[in-house]
Design a protein around this nucleic acid. Structure first.
Lengths: 205, 205
DNA sequence: CGTCGATGTATCGGCGCGATACATCAAACA
DNA sequence: TGTTTGATGTATCGCGCCGATACATCGACG
């Protein structure tokens, strides 16, 4: 999960940990809260020893040569870049769509965040899988509400009602996205100038 | 978190693990997915060795004597009940409102699920704290969107938009609940016949 | 000159998850 | 009659991720 997200970001441009966390938090902010350093740094370590990323990249925004901000003393900032194996792994993850993709908000959110680099078939599989899960959840709540409503206190009832509504809204949202994908006006390519990697760009408009 | 939820449920009536999980999943279903046994059983163990719960309660729905479903052989079903210390601890948790209460969906959800047993002041503190967090999140996304919108691909944009909308909706919901709490008219009291423990009834006391 | 907030790297304990295993029992089906 | 499925039920293991915490540098502001 974090692995996927980190590879995705480093695929766009080299970065150090702090920046990585900010971008992660911004990009995935819609579906999960802030990423903790307690998960970020160990994951970086794991990825590094797996050979998927490496130290020593030049951060993208190195306009002039600024002396490498005087990290004279001890801990300097460590810039990570993705390796060839890392890119391979990222492509592999882009095409995957297991249960972990649908189940957690986080898993789905990460995949969605990289939809611009995902092929249409996979996008559809993921959207439909997610819809299925949310529908199941919704049905569970509906049944619970209809069977036990009178035995519940007002707050539990309200919580349930609110959850149900959220599910219904998400299903509607997913439905729109799915319809859009299907009736497939295709990704018009508006080239993305952001990085050294050409970024695939999304659908119409 | 699980500790709180388990104590809350066992406070209503003794139960065994499987039942506990079902109730947990139903009651908290609005804010978190299913509870895993991989967390449930270790937590039960922890609570037990902390003296907050104990084995051997009679499950509430023992209408007639049904021979104790023939758990002749090995593993019988283990029924847990809350102890005096457990009740104390539960009361303590009911009144608490730290960051973990606002930050995670799950934390907030659990507290909300037991609002019927929470005093009005604490309810307000929790609702306002939660609102604050969601507002911060919302502002973060707004700023991100307004600053970086043109550099983002359509999917990231859509994800962001969706997240923002969800935040706005939750804030509105919280606002309503807060207003309701303040102007003190209570939700209807649905008296609780469920257990051997007299349950505090929801507000308007 | 101090200190405050942002930047930056890092570890530790512990919670909760997914996968997995195993056992009992009812009903459906062969 | 036997079997096989699905619900009920208890339990463990590895590990991802979180919150708390520590420490260091830097520019800005008073």
């Amino acid at each position: 999960m974090l692995e996927f997200a980190i590879l995705g970001l480093l695929h766009e441009s080299p970065m150090h940990g702090y920046e990585l966390r900010k971008q992660l938090t911004a990009k995935l902010g819609a579906f999960r809260a802030a990423i903790s350093y307690g998960s970020l740094y160990p994951t970086l370590r794991r990825l590094q020893s797996a050979g998927l990323i490496a130290e020593g990249g030049e951060p993208a925004t190195r306009a002039t040569n600024e002396e490498v901000p005087l990290l004279s003393g001890r801990r300097g900032r460590v810039v990570y870049k993705i390796t060839a194996e890392g890119k391979e792994r990222f492509q592999e993850l882009l095409g995957s769509a297991g249960p972990e993709t649908y189940d957690s908000e986080a898993g789905f959110g990460v995949h969605f965040a990289f939809f611009a680099s995902t092929d249409r078939a996979t996008r559809l599989r993921i959207l439909e899988g997610r819809r299925r899960r949310v529908e199941e959840r919704r049905e569970g709540m509906r049944e619970f509400l209809s069977r036990a409503a009178e035995r519940l206190d007002a707050y539990t009832l309200e919580l349930q009602r609110h959850g149900l509504e959220a599910c219904e809204r998400e299903v509607r949202w997913l439905e729109e996205l799915i319809a859009h994908e299907r009736s497939g006006k295709d990704p018009k390519i508006t080239s993305q100038p952001s990085s050294d990697l050409p970024r695939r760009s999304p659908l119409k408009e």
